[in-house]
């Protein structure tokens, strides 16, 4: 057991866990933030995606010991960010979700994409979202929602 100080969604948190515990399980079981999902445990589906120092990160494979002092943002906190909020709104208005289980990760990926690429092409979307599985298959609407969020942000709708 080791004690780790984390910053999650701007809040300081302290957990005492085995150093090898993946960030995913620290979030879900220690901090009770279950919006970040367990899908595969091997970074093959993206359901566990959070932002670590702004980088979309597969929390299921990152031991808490390697997080360091980098701030963590989860689906519960991404709405505080204008891009995050725009993406969530676009997801709702485009009626993207079906079962919804993968969508936390999809949204976190889309936010990372839009923050660096405000006007993504289809190729940008395919590459950036390329590692997130939606088993329901909502990909067409994911594309639409990313484009609509991009449009919304461009027009200052989510400033």
């Amino acid at each position: 057991m080791e004690t780790y100080k984390l910053t999650v969604n701007g809040q300081p948190k302290e957990v005492a866990v085995d150093p090898g515990t993946p960030l995913l399980w620290v979030l879900r079981e220690e901090l009770k933030m279950t919006g970040t999902k367990y899908g595969c445990g091997i970074a093959a589906c993206g359901a566990c995606t959070v932002h670590v120092a702004g980088i979309a990160t597969r929390s299921c494979v990152v031991p808490v010991s390697l997080v360091g002092d980098r701030p963590v943002v989860t689906i519960e906190g991404i709405g505080q960010d204008p891009v995050g909020r725009a993406v969530q709104d676009a997801w709702v208005s485009e009626d993207v979700v079906q079962c919804g289980y993968c969508q936390s990760g999809q949204i976190m990926g889309a936010v990372a994409l839009l923050k660096s690429t405000p006007k993504p092409t289809d190729t940008n979307i395919e590459e950036s979202m390329g590692g997130n599985i939606c088993r329901c298959g909502t990909y067409v609407r994911i594309r639409q929602a990313i484009k609509s969020a991009s449009q919304q942000l461009k027009s200052g709708g989510a400033s």
Partner: peptide
């Protein structure tokens, strides 16, 4: 008609069976 369960599925607040605590 848009889904009733979209928002909680987009902000992490919806609890699935696995999220039960």
């Amino acid at each position: 008609i848009r889904r009733l369960d979209s928002r909680p599925k987009c902000n992490g607040s919806l609890k699935f069976g696995l999220d039960l605590d």
